[in-house]
Design a protein around this nucleic acid. Structure first.
Lengths: 193, 193
DNA sequence: GTCTATAGATCGATAGAC
DNA sequence: GTCTATCGATCTATAGAC
């Protein structure tokens, strides 16, 4: 688990900011919306985030990355039981994204030009996730090249499941897709391990 | 092939509008950007689309849906050689999305609240695509339940490949993922057909 | 039909009272 | 550190000349 800084009021505003960015996107999240979501006036927001929306999003991305580092990446990187770790990852991810009702802020940022400011953070998030999952599979004796392919396919598949579940307004499609991704990984672990 | 209306100037502006919405998203695509992309003044845009941005996006969605209907959906729905049809679909999709450099306007719309206005169009697009692909697989003697699952997985997988390729700025990841999706479908056709 | 000019609203961001 | 008031810029949309 990463070291946790003392909670400032700035930190406590991040979940609400993240939810607003999630719902409206970066461009669509106006300061009025961010103010309403956090319960803070614009003045307070600018007191915590002098850099405005950009700094708010940067902080949200750090916060999300920290959560994933603790809950998802680290368990995969320091794995002892790969099958259990893969199962736990899919459980956590399904809960986190609320079966696809909640979009992935990081994935969405990469989709349009307004997110170019955060290209490095977006890239690092996915690169680390894929590499952590691939490592976990390698520990289970899956050959490195296949481990990379499977990891790439799984993370990409989760993102696609979010897009589709949102488009169809159908949680069950998310659950079916993600369940199949999980089975694919567990099968590979079973065959190679 | 669907009936093609006579080309008005309104129609000829749609590709440029689509590209602007694609790059900036619906909220991010300002009228100035749409004007620049089309080479038309605001006055002309409002002459063609009295309903403003909403009507422009509606027209873009119809245009995209028409293209997919002709190029992707119909060949799957009226299939004679399923394996060839699946291969053609992946070729066309890879070219259309430029190996993931181009995002899916329809998929992106579903991701944030600004797209709720177009929820029906978004839903219909994905529902028809999945159902057309599932039909194609059924023609190849893939059992209906499995055909639906595979179709859902493939369309979701394509969307995920776009998200990941954009996030990593890596065309090759798109190509690898989509190639695996294609192989999965062709394998099922080969096993059942 | 095309454009420019501009209205009216809202944007991000700042200033200053408390 | 909180808020309200407000700035200048930009937004969508409209009006009207040509």
């Amino acid at each position: 688990m990463s070291t946790k800084r003392a909670l400032t009021d700035r930190e406590s505003a991040l979940p609400a900011l993240a939810e607003a960015f999630r719902e409206h996107g970066f461009e669509g999240a106006t300061l009025a919306a961010l103010s309403k979501a956090t319960g803070l006036g614009k003045g307070s927001l600018y007191n915590f985030f002098p850099g405005g929306k950009d700094e708010m999003m940067k902080a949200v991305l750090e916060n999300i990355d920290g959560w994933f580092a603790d809950a998802i990446f680290s368990p995969l990187e320091n794995v002892s039981d790969p099958a259990a770790a893969v199962t736990a990852m899919f459980d956590d991810v399904t809960a986190y994204f609320r079966s696809g009702r909640r979009v992935c802020v990081v994935g969405c940022l990469g989709l349009n030009s307004s997110g170019e400011t955060f290209a490095v953070e977006v890239k690092d998030y996915f690169a680390r996730w894929i590499s952590a999952l691939a490592h976990c599979l390698e520990v289970a004796k899956v050959p490195p090249a296949m481990a990379m392919d499977l990891a790439e396919e799984a993370i990409s598949g989760i993102q696609g499941a979010i897009v589709l579940a949102r488009a169809l307004s159908d949680d069950t499609s998310f659950q079916r897709i993600v369940h199949r991704l999980q089975s694919t990984l567990l099968d590979a672990i079973g065959r190679c391990g």
